[in-house]
Design a protein around this nucleic acid. Structure first.
Lengths: 200, 200
DNA sequence: GTCTATATTCAGATAGAC
DNA sequence: GTCTATCTGAATATAGAC
């Protein structure tokens, strides 16, 4: 009998998600029809629903895949020798992908969906919570090590998250330069961590 | 003959905008029908289109009204005796309204609309540009006065704008506290302006 | 109430793995 | 040769605009 070929399945799934991402970024979730996703992916509607049960789940999967990478990045950050190194690595991971041209459209679609789709809100909310927890733990480790941040660890963690969000928001700007923004963000994080102290 | 009563007209217009704001925040521009705005405002569809030519224009008006306040705030900031005072005042103005419960929904709707409605994008884009110009001018004045910011004036201005955006984004969070966020933002702006120097 | 748009289902057709 | 993964596109159901 014929069996599932995991590689082939994964490849096609990824192709469908890529097509869906373009559509969602351009027209949002509600404005995108399953037919247009099928057209772009070059498949029939039956195939689409063979891979995903509903349109909403396609959108969720688009983000859920990234969240798994996030979990690994958090684990790596906590396992780092120096909390400061772990923190830098995690921030670097959070900023990855900021220069993807689909970011502005997908960000708008996601922000909109968070207000209307409770399950999606939970999905993103839990991931953000985990990130805050990890950042907070790293900041506490630094504080215990005699390097306390400017605000309390939990609030500093929130602000690092805010700064990352700000970079993603700026990604839609005319003159956005991902590398420059990343460098400036690092300077600001550095200040949040040290208050400008230059004691090595 | 019967003449328009400007006060009555403005009152009704404001009432319609308030009803529309709720609908747009909940369901976005495309998801909102003119019928639902009429229902919430307690008016007939004929009345709605007497005040506004199209649904899109209602959405534009919602923001255009605020932008006029912005123009006045910028003028006041430039006229201040000390650039630092003008800057603080302008930042305060930009943060006003962050605790309005409709902010998360309207922010999502606006961000989405910017990607799809060129005229709306121009409306917000020009206002943002003016704000950046004003902030940049104030920062240059400070620099000429021997108080240069951490990044070049133009980039520092962008970051102040980004930080304000980030606070608005955070307004949807569970434990959002507008006053605390405002205070923290002021601390960070303070650092952007001085690099942590405590020379008075 | 009618009518359009579109998410989802289903009955089949094809083809690869055993 | 059989069985199932994979795919298709017409059919269905339904929501919402007018």
């Amino acid at each position: 009998m014929r069996t599932v070929n995991p590689e082939q399945h994964a490849r096609k799934r990824a192709a469908i998600l890529a097509a869906a991402a373009q559509e969602f970024a351009e027209k949002g979730v509600d404005g995108t029809s399953t037919a247009s996703i099928c057209r772009r992916a070059g498949i029939g509607s039956g195939t689409l629903f063979h891979y995903f049960p509903t349109k909403r789940e396609i959108f969720h999967a688009l983000f859920a895949d990234d969240l798994e990478h996030g979990a690994r990045a958090r684990a790596a950050a906590l396992a780092a020798d120096d909390p400061r190194e772990g923190l830098d690595g995690l921030v670097g991971h959070l900023l990855a992908g900021a220069d993807d041209p689909l970011v502005p459209g997908l960000m708008a679609a996601a922000l909109f969906q968070v207000n209307r789709d409770a399950e999606f809100a939970r999905l993103l909310g839990e991931d953000e919570e985990r990130t805050i927890e990890t950042l907070t733990a790293l900041l506490r480790a630094l504080a215990d090590d005699g390097r306390p941040p400017v605000f309390p660890p939990e609030r500093t963690a929130r602000w690092i998250q805010h700064l990352v969000d700000a970079v993603f928001l700026a990604a839609g700007d005319e003159d956005f330069d991902a590398d420059r923004s990343r460098a400036e963000l690092r300077t600001m994080v550095d200040w949040l961590l040290t208050g400008g102290d230059r004691t090595p």
